[in-house]
């Protein structure tokens, strides 16, 4: 018989493959829309309006917003992939395929989160390729860029998983992205530097985790940030630990999935 580690690896790989196959199968719903939306962002905010806005943080406006737009598409897609896939599994009851199988809960979580990361990075890559039609991309700090995009995808995939656990209808998996995620993203420094805000709102912005992701990612690409990089990494890692612990607690308790 195969060793326990090998069986766990196969189970994880199977779940990840299934998740990747799912978002590729429905590519007109998962991969195409962000490419179109972000193209419009580049045309409208970058080219048309950006030329009138002028420089921001010492860069042309389109260069300044490119990292934020890439990051925005990564976190949105990492989140919605896990939330919709996990909720659909609950809705169609095929979550039971996993619950009856000898897979520990942490591997179920890891499989879904890895699926979310895969879609987030895939969409991030597509948006990066689209951005090349509008601007030249240079990366100043490759490690910061890659690690921050992966950590952000992990964090939002975990958020999507928790949303999927609690959701009892398809409406409930769109409420959080619409009413929380989108406002936080738009206020998270994608299109502006938080130094433009009055001091009070600058301090309020520091409670928005997306500020840290966007700024650290922008630092990786452009070498400029409104936030100290060490602080950004510490906060994102702390959020990941907290969300992982909470998601595992919910899975172990069987919330939303076991009677």
């Amino acid at each position: 018989m195969n060793s326990l580690y090998y069986r766990h690896w196969v189970a994880f790989n199977t779940l990840l493959t299934r998740e990747v196959r799912r978002f590729i199968r429905i590519w007109p719903q998962t991969l195409l829309p962000p490419a179109i939306t972000m193209t419009l962002y580049f045309i409208i905010f970058g080219n048309l309006m950006g030329s009138r806005i002028g420089e921001m943080g010492g860069f042309s406006y389109i260069d300044y917003i490119t990292p934020g737009i890439i990051m925005m598409s990564v976190i949105n897609n990492a989140y919605s992939n896990v939330a919709s896939s996990f909720y659909s599994a609950k809705f169609q009851n095929h979550i039971e395929e996993l619950l009856v199988a000898p897979i520990p809960n942490y591997l179920i979580l890891a499989g879904y989160v890895a699926g979310g990361i895969a879609r987030g990075l895939c969409v991030g890559l597509i948006v990066t390729l689209v951005s090349l039609f509008f601007t030249d991309i240079s990366i100043q700090h490759i490690f910061v860029t890659i690690s921050m995009v992966v950590l952000s995808a992990i964090m939002f995939a975990l958020g999507g998983f928790i949303n999927g656990i609690y959701a009892n209808s398809f409406d409930q998996i769109s409420i959080i992205p619409t009413f929380i995620l989108t406002p936080l993203t738009y206020l998270g420094g994608v299109f502006f530097s938080i130094t433009l805000l009055p001091e009070f709102w600058q301090n309020v912005s520091l409670f928005n985790p997306i500020i840290y992701m966007v700024n650290a990612f922008r630092y990786g690409m452009l070498g400029t940030s409104d936030i100290a990089i060490e602080v950004a990494f510490s906060i994102i890692i702390a959020c990941i630990i907290a969300l992982t612990t909470f998601a595992l607690h919910l899975l172990n308790k069987g919330t939303g999935i076991r009677n």
């Binding site: 196969v10 790989n13 199977t14 299934r18 996993l98 199988a101």
Partner: peptide, 14 residues
């Protein structure tokens, strides 16, 4: 077939 192969994978069968 994907359903069957995936279920086998969840039980550790490559």
């Amino acid at each position: 077939k994907h359903i069957l192969v995936a279920q086998a994978g969840f039980y550790g069968l490559a």
